[in-house]
């Protein structure tokens, strides 16, 4: 049976990881390649590296990092951040990335998804969606989920479920959905929205935002029907260790790779 995936996410700026770590007394806690290697040895199923650099030099450093990851790490990895045209995708895949993720660029120009899929195949194309749910207008109603641009700074007129369907139909390989309501709160993932996505999408969904304890991962798989769960700080700060998490999930009858 296909295993549910656990994916640590590393934010990279000028070639260094941004969020620190306080576990394992890393000599080079800021080196994304070293950190990725440790996660891989601990049993992470994939890695995501997000380039949060704005400068041109930073981009070059990021490409160098991708080459190093490809040479040294033997599990699949996705890179994202600043990818807005086919040329960027080609550069990342040539450097050795297995998949790329696009976000704002796809919302601005959805045809980019079709182009990536026809040039490189659907399996390389992850579309990240940041969305926020509004407060309900009346009691008993549900708030609307709206997609945001630029790392959650600019709202669009796109509804999460409509956009996810379009992304699916344009041939993307996966959707990485981050709930802005849950991100950073550490009270669990957006399981209702995730379950609704899983009910009509035909591609895998990676859940992001809200991981705080091991039970949250069980619930995102059991209730949210996610195919994979992504988290950053709970892993970086050692609040949850991947080997413990996987042992726990298996005990809870979630199929994970150990």
């Amino acid at each position: 049976m296909l295993a549910k995936r656990i994916i640590p996410c590393l934010d990279v700026k000028d070639g260094q990881t941004v969020k620190g770590t306080n576990f394992l007394q890393l000599r080079q806690a800021g080196d994304p390649v070293e950190l990725g290697k440790i996660y891989s040895q601990q049993g992470a199923d994939e890695l995501v590296f997000l380039d949060i650099t704005a400068s041109h030099e930073g981009r070059k450093t990021f490409t160098d990092m991708v080459q190093k990851v490809a040479a040294e790490i033997d599990i699949p990895f996705t890179v994202g951040g600043g990818i807005s045209e086919l040329r960027d995708v080609d550069r990342m895949l040539s450097a050795g990335a297995d998949k790329i993720s696009i976000n704002s660029a796809a919302l601005r120009r959805p045809e980019l998804i079709d182009e990536i899929v026809s040039h490189f195949g659907s399996q390389v194309c992850v579309v990240a969606i940041d969305a926020q749910q509004s407060l309900p207008e009346k009691e008993g109603e549900e708030g609307t989920w709206t997609c945001y641009l630029n790392g959650g700074r600019i709202p669009t007129d796109r509804n999460l479920f409509d956009w996810a369907k379009e992304v699916n139909d344009r041939g993307a390989g996966e959707i990485l959905f981050t709930s802005m309501n849950h991100d950073g709160v550490k009270q669990g993932f957006a399981n209702e929205a995730l379950a609704r996505l899983a009910s009509f999408l035909t591609i895998p969904v990676i859940a992001s935002g809200g991981a705080g304890k091991m039970e949250d991962f069980r619930d995102v798989f059991a209730q949210g029907h996610a195919d994979a769960a992504l988290a950053a700080s709970v892993f970086h700060f050692g609040q949850i260790s991947i080997p413990e998490l996987k042992t726990y999930l298996r005990k809870e009858k979630i199929n994970v790779r150990i």
Partner: peptide, 11 residues
């Protein structure tokens, strides 16, 4: 419905 194509991931 759960049978997604491509078969992608750890099996």
């Amino acid at each position: 419905h759960e049978d997604k194509i491509p078969h992608m991931g750890w099996n």
